[in-house]
Amino acid sequence: MPLYAGLPTMAERVWRSALVYAVIGAYPPAALFGIPAYFALRRHFAPHITNCAIAGAVVASLPWAFLTLVNTPDQAIIDNRTTVINGSKTAFGWLMTAQLLGEIALFGALGGALFWAIAVAGSGAGKVRDGE
């Protein structure tokens, strides 16, 4: 039975499911990898949008890369094409894994760019003030 069984509206189902995914699946890995990445990169690299986007892509895709490498089912099929046979990924399985990680990395890069826009670009660092 799905987690949202018995909820009255579709909006309520979407909201509750998103909340569970965020609290269990998104926030802990973001804190576990993102906070150390922030402090490590802050010391060694300038806060450019490119650096923030790359860090966001790595932080977002690293937990999923770990999960896809560690957890492999015995058999799996996507779109009537076999992705896993006897616990080993096929070429199509690796392609699907790369596509998944690429999509996650893209959204992580967008998140890193948004972080840069909020934390760095809006901080006023490097701006010339009148009379100084």
Rank of each mutant, 00 (worst) to 15 (best):
residue 100 L to N: 04
residue 125 A to S: 09
residue 24 I to W: 14
residue 50 T to V: 15
residue 55 A to H: 02
residue 38 Y to V: 06
residue 2 P to Q: 06
residue 51 N to W: 09
residue 48 H to N: 10
residue 109 A to W: 01
residue 106 L to C: 12
residue 50 T to C: 11
residue 44 H to V: 12
residue 100 L to W: 09
residue 54 I to N: 05
residue 69 L to D: 02
residue 99 Q to P: 00
residue 62 L to G: 05
residue 88 S to A: 11
residue 35 I to S: 07
residue 95 L to G: 12
residue 75 Q to A: 12
residue 20 V to S: 05
residue 120 V to Q: 09
residue 57 A to M: 02
residue 67 L to F: 14
residue 126 G to T: 04
residue 20 V to I: 12
residue 8 P to N: 10
residue 19 L to S: 07
residue 65 A to E: 02
residue 29 P to I: 01
residue 113 A to N: 02
residue 107 F to L: 12
residue 129 R to Y: 00
residue 22 A to F: 15
residue 77 I to P: 00
residue 9 T to I: 08
residue 55 A to P: 01
residue 14 V to I: 15
residue 44 H to A: 11
residue 60 A to W: 08
residue 117 A to V: 01
residue 33 F to Q: 06
residue 128 V to Y: 00
residue 15 W to H: 07
residue 65 A to L: 13
residue 89 K to Q: 11
residue 27 Y to E: 01
residue 56 G to N: 04
residue 125 A to Y: 04
residue 57 A to L: 05
residue 28 P to R: 08
residue 98 A to W: 11
residue 19 L to G: 12
residue 20 V to T: 00
residue 110 L to M: 12
residue 83 T to D: 14
residue 70 V to K: 06
residue 77 I to V: 10
residue 55 A to Y: 08
residue 96 M to K: 10
residue 19 L to I: 01
residue 77 I to A: 08
residue 83 T to S: 14
residue 66 F to K: 03
residue 24 I to P: 03
residue 33 F to I: 10
residue 118 I to S: 03
residue 21 Y to C: 13
residue 7 L to F: 10
residue 107 F to C: 10
residue 46 A to C: 07
residue 99 Q to V: 13
residue 15 W to R: 11
residue 22 A to Q: 09
residue 63 P to N: 02
residue 68 T to C: 11
residue 38 Y to S: 07
residue 124 G to M: 06
residue 110 L to A: 15
residue 40 A to L: 15
residue 114 L to W: 12
residue 95 L to Q: 12
residue 32 L to W: 14
residue 73 P to N: 09
residue 84 V to N: 10
residue 94 W to H: 10
residue 74 D to F: 14
residue 2 P to I: 04
residue 14 V to D: 04
residue 77 I to E: 14
residue 81 R to S: 07
residue 104 I to F: 14
residue 39 F to I: 04
residue 34 G to C: 07
residue 40 A to G: 02
residue 49 I to D: 07
residue 41 L to H: 03
residue 76 A to E: 15
residue 71 N to A: 13
residue 60 A to S: 15
residue 47 P to H: 00
residue 57 A to F: 04
residue 2 P to A: 09
residue 18 A to D: 02
residue 72 T to I: 14
residue 126 G to V: 03
residue 78 I to R: 08
residue 67 L to R: 02
residue 131 G to H: 04
residue 119 A to S: 11
residue 39 F to W: 12
residue 53 A to K: 00
residue 37 A to L: 10
residue 64 W to T: 00
residue 124 G to Y: 07
residue 111 G to M: 05
residue 128 V to C: 00
residue 106 L to P: 04
residue 13 R to C: 14
residue 115 F to A: 13
residue 36 P to T: 00
residue 71 N to Y: 05
residue 79 D to E: 13
residue 111 G to L: 09
residue 126 G to M: 03
residue 82 T to D: 01
residue 128 V to M: 05
residue 14 V to N: 01
residue 69 L to R: 07
residue 71 N to P: 07
residue 104 I to E: 01
residue 22 A to S: 13
residue 20 V to K: 08
residue 127 K to N: 01
residue 66 F to D: 00
residue 113 A to P: 01
residue 124 G to W: 07
residue 49 I to H: 06
residue 17 S to A: 12
